[in-house]
C-alpha cells in the first residue's frame, strides 16, 4: 500500500505479511514511515492506495473502533479523568460485557502486568513505567487479533527500558497475540522480535530474523543501521569459491552464499566483534588478514573498541571482549583478522 500526504510519500508501495502469534518489529530511523504504517494497520490513517487485511478480512476502509486491533501509544494516552480501573475496562465497557466479568478480567490483566492494587489511582499518580504497563493492559484485555505498539518504551530510562523489553517479550509469549512493535532502536528490535522489517524512506529494505538481518544485511542502509559494518569496496574474482580482491591487491575470502553470484565491484563488510587483532606471527589466525595501524583504543568496560586504518586508508572498527587478551595502543602495527564465513556482501 502507499500513503501520500500532499506531496510527501510516507509509505511507498509497501507489501507486508505478518505472521500471527509472533513478535514483529518495524525498525527504522525517524521519518521512514514505520509509524505511518502502524497507524494504517490500526485505522488512524487511510492508505492512499492499497488494502489491509486482518486475519483474512479486508479492513481497509474501517474505522479503528471496528477493527480487532488495539494500540499502545507512544505517549500512553491514558485517560486522565478516569481511574486506572476504568482505563483498563474502557474497551470492555464498549462491548456488552457484564460488570462482574469486567472486574475479573481487569484483575487478571493487572496481575499480568504486575500492577495489582492500583485500580483506584489516576494516571497522573503513576510513574512512567507504570503508565506504560497500564496502557499495555488496556489494550491486551480486549484480546485483539494484533497488538500495535508505537515506540512505547521511548520515554523510559535505560534500565527500565531493558526491563520492559524482557517483560513485553514474556507477555507476548504467554498470551500468544501477534505484536507489531515500532521502534528506531535496533537493540530493542533485536532483543524482542522474532521477525524484523527494516524500513527506510517508506520502503522495506530487508525482512528477516534478527540474526539474518544482523549477520547478512542485504543493503548498505541495513548494514549501517544495525551497527558498525566496516564496508569495504572490493572486486569479485571468483564468486563460486568466494574470493574477492581489494584495491591494494589483498585477497579476501567471503561466504559464497553471501556473494550470491555477483560480479564486478561490490561492497563487503564485517561486524566489529568478528575482527580479531593479532601480531604478525601469532598462531591460529583466521584466513582473512589485513595489515593495519591502530588509531584509537577505548576501554568501555565489557570490551575494548579499536579503530584501525588499512593501507588503503579505510577505517575499520573492531571490538575485543575484555577477557584479558593483550591490549593494543594507538600506533601499533597489527593484523586485523576474521573468518571468511563471517563476511557479508551488500547489494545496493
Amino acid at each position: 500500500m502507499t500513503k501520500r500526504f500532499s506531496d510527501i510519500v510516507a509509505v511507498d508501495d509497501l507489501t507486508l505479511d505478518i505472521e500471527e502469534h509472533r513478535f514483529f518489529a518495524l525498525l527504522g530511523p525517524s521519518g521512514c514511515g514505520k509509524t505511518t504504517t502502524l497507524r494504517m494497520i490500526g485505522g488512524f490513517e487511510e492508505p492512499t492506495t492499497g488494502t489491509i487485511r486482518l486475519d483474512g478480512q479486508d479492513v481497509t476502509g474501517l474505522k479503528p473502533y471496528r477493527r480487532l486491533a488495539n494500540t499502545v501509544f507512544q505517549s500512553y494516552a491514558l485517560f486522565p479523568h478516569l481511574s486506572i480501573y476504568e482505563n483498563v475496562a474502557f474497551g470492555l465497557r464498549r462491548t456488552k460485557v457484564s460488570d462482574s466479568e469486567i472486574k475479573t478480567r481487569v484483575g487478571e490483566m493487572l496481575d499480568l502486568v504486575q500492577l495489582a492494587g492500583l485500580e483506584k489511582r489516576r494516571s497522573g499518580q503513576l510513574s512512567g513505567g507504570q503508565q506504560q504497563r497500564v496502557a499495555l493492559a488496556r489494550a491486551l484485555i480486549n484480546h485483539p487479533k494484533v497488538l500495535l505498539l508505537d515506540e512505547p518504551l521511548g520515554a523510559l530510562d535505560l534500565k527500565l527500558r531493558k526491563e520492559m523489553q524482557i517483560e513485553l517479550k514474556r507477555i507476548q509469549t504467554e498470551v500468544g497475540i501477534t505484536f507489531v512493535h515500532v521502534t528506531h532502536d535496533q537493540e530493542e528490535a533485536m532483543t524482542m522480535a522474532d521477525t524484523i522489517a527494516v524500513m527506510n524512506e517508506g520502503r522495506i529494505e530487508q525482512l528477516g530474523s534478527p540474526t539474518e538481518i544482523y549477520e547478512r544485511p542485504r543493503s548498505r542502509f541495513v548494514a549501517n543501521f544495525l551497527g558498525a559494518s566496516n564496508l569495504m569496496s572490493v572486486r569479485v574474482i571468483d564468486a563460486e569459491a568466494g574470493r574477492v580482491k581489494m584495491a591494494d591487491g589483498v585477497e579476501l575470502g567471503v561466504d559464497p552464499d553471501a556473494l550470491e553470484a555477483s560480479e564486478g565491484e561490490i561492497l563487503v563488510g564485517i561486524r566489529p566483534e568478528k575482527i580479531r587483532l593479532a601480531m604478525p606471527g601469532d598462531s591460529d589466525l583466521p584466513r582473512n588478514s589485513l595489515e593495519v595501524v591502530v588509531t584509537d583504543a577505548s576501554f568501555i568496560g565489557v570490551a575494548t573498541q579499536y579503530l584501525v586504518r588499512t593501507s588503503t586508508g579505510a577505517e575499520l572498527s573492531a571490538v575485543a571482549q575484555n577477557v584479558g587478551a593483550h591490549r593494543y595502543s594507538p600506533g601499533d602495527h597489527v593484523l586485523a583478522t576474521w573468518e571468511p564465513g563471517h563476511t557479508f556482501a551488500v547489494h545496493g
Partner: peptide, 10 residues
C-alpha cells in the same frame, strides 16, 4: 495475520 497488499484507488 495481517496481510497488506496492492489494490485499486478509490
Amino acid at each position: 495475520m495481517a496481510d497488506v497488499g496492492h489494490a485499486v484507488a478509490q
